[in-house]
Design a binder for these strands. Structure first.
Lengths: 231, 231
DNA sequence: GATCGCATCGTACGACGTACGAGTCAATTG
DNA sequence: CAATTGACTCGTACGTCGTACGATGCGATC
């Protein structure tokens, strides 16, 4: 832990090699590469969750030995970081909307964000422990620009950005963890029966049963956008 | 995995035994108990983080053999659940404020929530993967009652509750993960220098440098409360 | 004293992340 | 051509983890 910076070996970080075009396929398998490792890791995470990703299983899926991964990747944590950042990439709105529609642009980006994470529920539980990857910073940058252009004053800008970010993060994480819970219906059912006695208001409002998550997300986001102070 | 429900042994779940008052202390140590396990687990989590909690280390701290823990606890996941729920307990506002001050009551509960999680940063990264414990449900119930009494209509109630919940969750998780990042200043510094080129708006607004987290939290919460539709 | 439940713990097993060094093979150099 | 290099792969091994299993101790009851 103390000599963490002693890592002098370059290993792989860029993949700018001349493509071996006519390389005869070794048993019909593609060559190992960082890209292939990452997409396979995402598949594995989708299939078996955070605890299902092990270096040995990942190597099996890629068709290599376990230790071969370590040529392309520093350690398991790096695999998590790469998978997370890959999943969070954002390609702006497909058709250029009218440039004045800041609200539409913010909504599109935030809903895409949420959708991306819900497509890969493990990402929600991974994000809290990880750094801000480039794709997250891209989204923050876009959000920042759009809000500023929309007329949010400099004094309120940071609070506004964080409010939206926080809202999306919380909503997504909550939603994703509910998916986890619903996995074992037995415990869920038992919890719900005990709810009516101990938590009457929650029960009567169907807070935990209402599954119109998308609608609630949009509605709450509307509340928040309504509260933002525009110049 | 298939016979998970085959667990018929009662083990320990309640601790309503007659207290052994005159039991001579065995080497001066208290008896092992679920409560002692949980508080020790929290200490260990505070000291060494999520990855620092292992059953063997926990047993050492409690002064027992590793396998003795399993008499009181189903498995390691249960330790996480118990530690998390314990940390999230809420004892309402200390002095009874005037009963009409719904905004103050909501603010107090949400800020206490955030403060509780930030006192134990591991809780933020743990929450996304765990069930809603009783103490979380208590807070949701209180929030629900307060907002309803404040005049939020039934049609908007759930969206309002989730908005506040999402906001607090997101803000807390973000804040806690920033603490993690600041642990290694080297990478942080490097990231910041590359920021000015790639992410100009983020840079110029000092989004990542401004460390008035508490103020930003309160301000954004204000935006959100301002946006709630009251009857 | 014999029996029985509660509670503790030593040993052992399989799975994990990964350090280490030996192996392969194409490109480069003489 | 042979020798060397460097990019890349992987088998083995070590230490650590969660925890299944069965032996053990002990106070209460018969």
């Amino acid at each position: 832990m103390a000599n963490k910076s002693g890592r002098a070996t370059g290993k792989r970080s860029q993949r700018t090699r001349s493509p071996p075009p006519s390389a005869q396929e070794r048993g019909g398998e593609q060559p190992l590469s960082l890209g292939r490792i990452v997409v396979t890791a995402i598949e594995l995470l989708d299939a078996e969750g955070v605890n299902g990703l092990t270096m040995r299983k990942l190597a099996d899926r890629v068709g290599s030995g376990a230790m071969s991964l370590y040529w392309h990747v520093d350690n398991k944590e790096a695999v998590f970081d790469l998978a997370l950042d890959t999943v969070l990439e954002y390609r702006g709105p497909q058709q250029k909307a009218e440039p004045q529609d800041w609200r539409g642009e913010v909504l599109h980006m935030l809903e895409d964000w949420r959708a991306s994470m819900l497509r890969h529920p493990w990402s929600a539980s991974l994000l809290p422990r990880r750094a801000l990857g480039p794709n997250i910073l891209n989204r923050l940058e876009l959000l920042s620009k759009t809000l500023s252009a929309a007329g949010v004053g400099d004094a309120d800008l940071n609070a506004a950005i964080w409010s939206l970010w926080n809202y999306v993060m919380g909503a997504t994480i909550t939603r994703a963890s509910f998916d986890f819970l619903d996995a074992d219906r037995a415990a869920a059912q038992q919890r719900l029966t005990s709810l009516s006695e101990r938590y009457p208001t929650i029960e009567s409002s169907h807070l935990l049963l209402d599954d119109d998550w998308d609608g609630a997300f949009r509605k709450g986001l509307g509340f928040l956008l309504d509260g933002l102070p525009l110049r």
